[in-house]
């Protein structure tokens, strides 16, 4: 199906209040089509509320949102035809087998023919590696198997958008890997919008992320951009020798945003935040070495781990709220 917008999900000023509690505060979100989009945030940040609003389970207090160009409130039914949803704790019809659950789910989207619906269910079982357990009662399934069945159910209608709420949070490393592999397999066909606490997973499979804090998006963009942290591009330079003139020399460079120094035993570690990658790449080291008294022991571009970037962003935002 073709859509006019480049974004699968777009919200503007989405706000949700539960009594006095502000769950979402002016949420602006743009999820590019065919991306695996990680939705991060501390507990209570509003991730699940956002998902529920997108699914039409809850109405926003104010603001607007669109999924594939359809209004999330007025055209919810049309949206839900094209969405697959995996809740944080997947639920099934307990007295049905895995296959029966899939057929039941498929019947909400497809009229038939029934033989084709069964074929589609078999494909989904195969995708999540549950073919051998298709006709067993669900109550005997492990947590990982239930999660995989949940993904199969979310995918049964061949959705253009998959919304997964903490898809791997309750799984062991093998189960988590299986779920991530399935998500990667689905990338070509669907946009995947998922929330998680496991930042390792996000770094492994996501194309883009949004970080939510206190109901507001505090950072959003491609994963590489987020990994650069709020200070942008940072170079890490180990320096030996008298550095009394270095800070002044660096501050004369227009593309140096700020510097921080950490004194070590017989050297100092400088973190230099820059706005012009090309200029820094070609001349930063030269500028430092212009001072003949200095020796550079280390020169590298700082690679943030997502966890570090996440903590910086969320902590920075929370501090900002307090001050």
């Amino acid at each position: 199906m073709e859509y006019a917008s480049d974004f699968a999900i777009q919200t503007r000023g989405l706000t949700k209040k539960f009594g006095q509690v502000q769950a979402l505060n002016d949420l602006d979100l743009k999820v590019p089509r065919h991306s695996i989009f990680g939705f991060l945030g501390p507990n209570g940040a509003g991730k699940t509320t956002t998902m529920k609003i997108l699914l039409g389970l809850t109405e926003p207090t104010s603001g607007v949102g669109e999924i594939f160009g359809h209004d999330i409130v007025a055209e919810s039914l049309a949206i839900r035809e094209r969405i697959g949803y995996l809740p944080q704790h997947p639920r099934f019809i307990e007295y049905m087998t895995a296959r029966e659950n899939l057929i039941f789910s498929a019947n909400f989207y497809f009229r038939g023919p029934q033989a084709k619906i069964r074929e589609r269910c078999d494909e989904m079982l195969e995708l999540v590696g549950l073919t051998g357990k298709a006709d067993r009662p669900i109550k005997g399934f492990s947590g990982g198997e239930k999660q995989r069945l949940g993904i199969a159910l979310a995918q049964i209608n061949d959705p253009d958008l998959l919304i997964l709420d903490e898809p791997a949070s309750s799984l062991d490393p093998i189960g988590r890997q299986a779920v991530l592999d399935i998500m990667a397999d689905l990338r070509e066909r669907s946009t995947i919008f998922y929330s998680t606490h496991i930042l390792d997973d996000v770094q492994r499979v996501s194309d883009a992320v949004a970080i939510l804090n206190q109901g507001k998006v505090v950072a959003s963009g491609p994963i590489g951009q987020i990994l650069n942290g709020k200070d942008g591009l940072v170079y890490q330079v180990g320096v030996k020798g008298p550095t009394d003139r270095l800070e002044d020399r660096l501050s004369e460079l227009s593309w140096v945003k700020n510097t921080t120094v950490k004194e070590q035993k017989d050297s100092s570690l400088w973190q230099i935040s820059v706005s012009d990658e090309a200029a820094a790449e070609s001349t930063l080291l030269r500028h430092i070495l212009d001072d003949q008294r200095l020796t550079v022991t280390e020169f590298s571009r700082k690679e943030y781990e997502l966890e570090e970037a996440f903590m910086n962003i969320v902590k920075g935002d929370s501090d900002g709220h307090k001050s």
Binding site: K52, L55, G56, L57, L77, R80, I83, P87, S105
Partner: peptide
């Protein structure tokens, strides 16, 4: 209570 209603209503169901 179990969340099944939520799951069902996330499908194209009136």
């Amino acid at each position: 209570q179990s969340g099944l209603t939520e799951w069902l209503l996330a499908k194209p169901v009136a």
